[in-house]
């Protein structure tokens, strides 16, 4: 158990897992910032993307090729799903007062989460699914790192940089940040609030889908019922890092990922799912504004 090699491997696993959590959390936090709605079905989108990717991959037969094909199909689809989700379910709620919006949005997104869970369980079955990619692992002495962990890490960095450039330099990205900062002023400057919110929902869904596919491809098991706990983990990541900051979310994700894998390695795998809420409560007691908060 206390083998140092094993601990180092767990930390590497944790960093990659944390990167995946970061992607998922970035989607959740973007949506919350722009549309003012915390999408509780976000984790279920991750699950849906992961499970669809699993079935596409197993239909094709070759894991690496299958995952690329699955990603190229699922990602655009989720963009559309996110936009439709906004126009169909969230936009009718936005006219309400803050309190009514909170109640309405929580019930609608939870309801959506239940529906996705039920449909996923019906169509994909309730067994845990994961994909094993048969690349040769990297060996540094006794240390063994699966090759795809490194690929995943590179993919996550590329996506994060791409997202950062998108938010800083494109008109849509700037509109998103403007709406997050001040809704009224953004509206009076002529920024289409609903259009921006819809695109944000789409972007969030894309990030969830990418997170789900990477989660699956790294051999982490997905069942139809882990969605809500993924949403809670994403929330923990956002709170740990401090709300409204990209870099905070990255740090929060890595902290949570490493904490989870280390709990699994040192204490027992039984407690790994519980660690996120423990961290959440501790961070709230000590630094309620997050690690980077002032």
């Amino acid at each position: 158990m206390s083998n140092p090699i094993f601990i180092v491997e767990s930390v590497i696993d944790g960093i990659v897992l944390g990167g995946i959590y970061t992607l998922i959390s970035l989607g959740l936090s973007l949506i919350y910032g722009v549309a003012g709605v915390l999408n509780i079905s976000h984790g279920d989108m991750v699950v849906l993307a992961g499970l669809s990717a699993f079935f596409i991959t197993s239909a094709i037969g070759v894991p690496s090729l299958g995952l690329v094909i699955a990603a190229s199909g699922i990602v655009p689809m989720f963009l559309v799903v996110g936009v439709l989700l906004y126009y169909g379910l969230i936009k009718p709620l936005t006219k309400r007062t803050k309190q009514e919006l909170l109640i309405g949005a929580i019930l609608v997104t939870i309801g959506l989460s239940f529906i996705i869970q039920d449909l996923a369980a019906t169509f994909f079955g309730t067994l845990p699914r994961s994909v094993y990619i048969g690349f040769e692992p990297l060996k540094l002495g006794e240390l063994v790192v699966p090759f795809f962990r490194i690929v995943t890490f590179v993919i996550i960095v590329v996506i994060a940089v791409f997202l950062w450039i998108f938010l800083k330099n494109t008109f849509t990205g700037m509109s998103m940040r403007a709406v997050t900062n001040n809704r009224e002023v953004a509206l009076s400057l002529g920024i289409p609030i609903h259009g921006t919110s819809a695109i944000t929902f789409g972007t969030g869904a894309v990030l969830a889908a990418l997170g789900g596919i990477l989660y699956l491809a790294n051999g982490f098991p997905i069942t139809p019922f882990v969605g809500l706990s993924l949403t809670v983990k994403a929330l923990t990541v956002i709170v740990i890092g401090g709300t409204g900051r990209l870099i905070g979310t990255v740090i929060g994700g890595v902290v949570l990922g490493v904490a989870e894998t280390l709990t699994g390695a040192i204490i027992s795998f039984y407690w790994a799912p519980a660690i996120s809420i423990i961290i959440l409560l501790i961070v709230l007691m000590i630094k309620p504004k997050g690690i980077l908060g002032e």
Binding site: Y32, V37, L38, I40, K98, L102, A105, I106, L228, S229, T231, V232, L235, T236, V239, Y270, W271, P273, A274, S276, I277, I278, L280, L281, I282, L284, M285, P288
Partner: peptide, 29 residues
């Protein structure tokens, strides 16, 4: 003490997370 540091959506989701945690706690070996 920890929960009321949160408001609105965050409070709701954190309290939702407590259910999973309690379930794990009560069924732990």
């Amino acid at each position: 003490y920890p929960l009321f540091r949160l408001r609105g959506f965050y409070f709701a989701v954190a309290s939702l997370g407590l259910i999973t945690f309690t379930s794990i706690l009560f069924s732990s070996p």
